[in-house]
Design a protein around this nucleic acid. Structure first.
Lengths: 195, 195
DNA sequence: CACTTAAATGACTTGCCGGTCAGCAAACGG
DNA sequence: CCGTTTGCTGACCGGCAAGTCATTTAAGTG
């Protein structure tokens, strides 16, 4: 009888458009009209698939962190410090910078919805536990220091990596300089882990 | 003849009120009416001392970073790695957390005025140069590794410290846990610097 | 092809907030 | 105590953007 559309596909299309807009201009600066134009539809249509701007961004970060988590989970556990470092290098791939700025906007006080912080905080909690396991294993085989609680150590490394992300993103240095800074930070972390 | 007021004092009063509001609720979420109420005056009065909300926040971060810079500049140059570490510990005093969240809002894409990023970026540039000098001296006396460009090393340490700030601020753990994480990060940095 | 009904549209409504300004208050001098 | 000048006030304005909904479009069906 009537017209029928693929709802999940429409949602995905809208999410893609929103991701593009948000990473380019930020969450607050992006208007729903921008997202609509980018997705090739009218503003009202967005509200047939999402209850509002909130749901769009929350869905986006949920799926983004879900993906990262799945990626990291699928990697084999590192058997040496070198293994772990190359894993880190992969994670700090410079490609992800765009999303990073958006995440800082969401973590900032301007984004009042606590669900955003919860999603991101939950990811970091999980990652800390995941890496703590790695650190415990590496410490047991004498590859890294064992004078620290692995969970606290993991948290420290995560926080430091995040700072690296932030600075690479916000002060966006040219490629060679960015690589040099990233390598310096990773070297520092590696030596730090060895103890 | 006419009424005369102490303009600098009024500006300071407004800045104090604004700082309180911004650090509590963030820049975007703070209305000029909030600042006025906090400062105990009418909204219109604010515009007799500042051209707008922009000037208020820019003045605030300028003076904030100016203060930090003066503080750091006044400290004696560290003569050992331990000296440097206690200096770091002082800087990462947990008191400063409130302002940190605000800074991330300003660095995020939601705050479009480039002057904010410029002020903060300028501060980090200066700090990198300042610490690079320290690192060069410590490397010369064999206290830390000398296989890295001191400036790049300084940048890495700054970025990592910033990440530490971010995580301590946003995910605000309880005091003892926060201290443990801070100490773990500093230990990591110390070992990393030794090489 | 006509008819039904889901889907799409975009002008409109609504609320918000930065910024303004006409009127009022207060301080000082003569 | 009045006149003058500066300072203060808060109701109002204008623009902006999220979200709505009456109307239009178009896909599927007999």
């Amino acid at each position: 009888m009537p017209k029928i559309v693929d709802k999940p596909k429409m949602r995905a299309q809208i999410l893609d458009a929103a991701m593009l807009c948000f990473t380019q201009k930020g969450y607050h600066a992006t208007k729903m009209a921008d997202v609509a134009r980018q997705a090739g539809m009218a503003k009202g249509t967005l509200y047939l698939y999402f209850t509002g701007k909130d749901e769009v961004i929350l869905t986006l970060i949920q799926s983004y962190f879900g993906q990262i988590r799945a990626e990291i989970e699928s990697l084999p556990a590192p058997h040496s410090l070198e293994d772990y470092l190359s894993l880190l290098r992969m994670i700090v791939s410079l490609e992800k910078r765009k999303m990073t700025a958006l995440i800082f906007e969401i973590l900032g006080p301007g984004f009042t919805d606590p669900r955003g912080v919860q999603i991101i905080g939950g990811f970091f909690d999980w990652l800390a536990g995941h890496w703590a396991q790695h650190f415990a294993d590496l410490a047991a085989s004498g590859q890294i220091r064992s004078d620290n609680d692995p969970k606290v150590l993991a948290r420290a490394v995560i926080a430091m990596l995040d700072g690296l992300f932030l600075h690479l993103t916000v002060f966006s240095p040219e490629e060679p300089l960015a690589v040099a800074r990233r390598e310096a930070a990773l070297t520092l972390i590696a030596s730090g882990l060895k103890g």
